[in-house]
Each structure stands twice: as C-alpha cells, then as structure tokens.
Design a protein around this nucleic acid. Structure first.
Length: 326
DNA sequence: AAGGCTCACAACCGCTTTTTA
DNA sequence: TTAAAAAGCGGTTGTGAGCCT
C-alpha cells in the first residue's frame, strides 16, 4: 500500500500562483508563521493549494530577502566550484549564496551556466553526483591522476587563512583515497606526492608548516612549489602562528626546513618529497562517518575565510582523511 | 500575421530523510 | 522501537515570452 496523499488532489489548484494567492500566503505567514505544519497551512490561510505547493512558493519566491535577477560573476564562480566538487546538491550550493534558492540555482545552472562552461571545461560536467564510497578499499595508487596546479584554486586572504573555491579552478571531484599517512609514505610514489590533494591532520598536527618558522608556504607564492598538496590542521603549532581559536587553517605544502614529529609536513629531507599533514606514526582507520562530516565542512565553509570546525562532531585525534582532487 | 521553435523559470512529482507520536 | 507524517530535495515538466522564418 502506498503513502496516503498529502492533500485532496482533486480539490487543489495547480499551476501558476495568482497575485491574490501570493498575498494571502504572504500575509498569513507574516502574521502567524508556518506553525511548523505546511499541510494544514493552506486551509488556515484560505488557499486551495497543496501544502507542498505553498511551501515551495514561499521558499522560492515569497519569503523575504530572496534575490531575483542576474547572477554575478562571483556567484557563477561559487556555483561552478561547488558543482565541480559536490555535484548537483543544490540546497548546499544555495546555502553559500545568500538570497538564492536551490531551485533558482538549479535552473540557472541548467539553462545558462552549464552551457557557458561547456566549451571551457568539459571535465566539469563529468563530475560524480556523489562522492564515491571506497570504504576500506581505496583505489590503487597507480590510478592517481597527474599533477595539476592548485595555485589558481587557493588564494591568500589578509588574515593568513586560505580561501578555496575563489578562483576559476574547476576540480571535478573530491575523492577520498587514503586513510593514513604511513601507507602514503611507504609507497614513496612520486606520482602521488606530486599530485593534488587535501589532507586533514589530527589535533595539534600542523599541516604544511615548517618548524623552522620560515612558513613561506602559508603566505603563498614567492617560491616555487614542487608539490601542490593542501593541508588543514586544527592548530598551527609549529609555525609561530598558533591559532588559539581552533580555526582550521589551510596551508601550502612544499615547506622550507622540513618538519618533524608528530607531523610530517613540509619537505622531507630523507625522501626528497614534499607532503603535508597527517601523522606518520599512528595508524588508525578512518571512521568513515567522518567523510560526510569533512565533506560538509568543505561545503559549508568552503567559501569562508575561517574554517570553523565542530570538534565534537567532526574531529577525533589521530584520524586523518585525505581528499584527492582530480 | 501565424506557426514553430527555443529558452527561462515556476511549479510539480516522487523519492529520501527527518521528525513525531 | 517503529511506523506514519511531514519536510526536504533534486529531477522533470508545463507554460509563457520572445525570436525566427
């Protein structure tokens, strides 16, 4: 047996909303709110509409501060970047664009933006709808994509935080690949180290820092980067830029002096490779629930300067995640 | 002027997720 | 704990406006 219909389909009006209906709905909600029950609302408001229809009309059109009209260049970039990394999760994308609705963005993407970009970056349209779930079977390393510069993706803000998704870089997906740095180190795989990835270090594991304080990698630019990894650390303990507010900081790999215990980052003198973040001494399996949390972190905060991190929910010491850009 | 076509966008449909009793 | 209801979400469709022939 199927679900009972939410309303009497035969007696509800469908199709475009009239100005009278709009004002009825608007007035009612402004006066009484939704009461947390859209199904009952139309009757109370004197509308012959389905509750779902009312909800949609309110959310997409009538509620205050809805932006209509042209999308700005900056909005375009944000949409493209987020679409590239998370796919068609319109509500999440909309959350990054104040005043825009998911429906609005979806329509804009389908009618204009997609076409605009088609000629520019075919890969963008080949994104995966959802992140692949590799669980404990990450793809073999030889599948690692080739290097691609991150420099256009990340820009440095005034307060030494990096802000991803600001430029025209269009990664096609986040792909979680490895769960601990040890296996990464053991591979000594030049391809991997010279590729693009995001890595999340554990507590007090600075990523991309150098213990000699040179810290040139955080100021981005001015030096040649042999490697394009990006790392996050909850506190930036080894660079003299400790962040007591526990903001997540993003740094650039390819450090100066090479770092040491417990974080492997910067330039590793023994291997000659550069890498970022993580703890090579501790092997813990990733709790894969965290993948969603990290994804959410990126999605939610990807366009902000400060990477706020809900420690209780999203972070446990010694658990590391790596995302691979390709 | 009329018909056909394309495009943009509002709205709907149905599935999934969350909430509630 | 569970099932039903409600809300959320994304894909799809319907419709009107504008353009072209």
């Amino acid at each position: 047996m199927g679900r009972a219909p939410c309303c009497d389909k035969a007696n509800v009006k469908k199709g475009p909303w009239s100005p009278e209906e709009d004002s009825k709905l608007k007035e009612y909600i402004e006066k009484y709110g939704t009461g947390g029950n859209w199904i009952a609302l139309p009757q109370k408001a004197g509308l012959k509409r389905c509750g779902k229809s009312c909800r949609l009309r309110w959310l997409n059109y009538l509620r205050p501060n809805i932006k209509h009209g042209e999308f700005s260049e900056n909005e375009d970039k944000i949409i493209c970047s987020l679409f590239a990394s998370i796919g068609s999760r319109w509500s999440i994308i909309a959350a990054q664009l104040p005043g825009r609705t998911d429906n609005d963005i979806k329509n804009y993407w389908n009618t204009k933006l997609k076409k605009k970009l088609l000629g520019m970056s075919p890969n963008l349209l080949h994104h995966q709808k959802k992140l692949p779930s590799y669980n404990n079977n990450p793809p073999p390393l030889h599948q690692t994509p080739t290097s691609q510069s991150f420099s256009s993706l990340f820009s440095c803000s005034n307060n030494n935080y990096y802000t991803p998704f600001k430029s025209s870089f269009e990664p096609t997906s986040f792909l979680p690949i490895l769960t601990n740095t040890t296996s990464l180190l053991e591979t000594q795989d030049q391809t991997l180290f010279s590729s693009n990835y995001l890595m999340f270090g554990g507590d007090n594991q600075a990523s991309c820092s150098s213990s000699d304080g040179s810290c040139t990698q955080i100021s981005y630019g001015g030096r040649e980067m042999k490697q394009q990894g990006m790392g996050f650390a909850q506190s930036y303990i080894s660079s003299g830029l400790e962040d007591h507010n526990q903001k997540f900081m993003l740094g650039y790999g390819g450090g100066g002096g090479g770092d040491h215990n417990p974080t492997v980052c910067g330039e590793d003198n023994s291997s000659g490779y550069n890498f970022v973040g993580g703890d090579h001494q501790i092997q813990n399996p990733v709790v894969y629930d965290q993948l969603e949390d990290i994804k959410q972190l990126i999605i939610t905060n990807g366009c902000n300067n400060n990477f706020l991190f809900d420690e209780n929910k999203t972070h446990q010491q010694d658990q590391k995640l790596m995302y691979y850009y390709y």
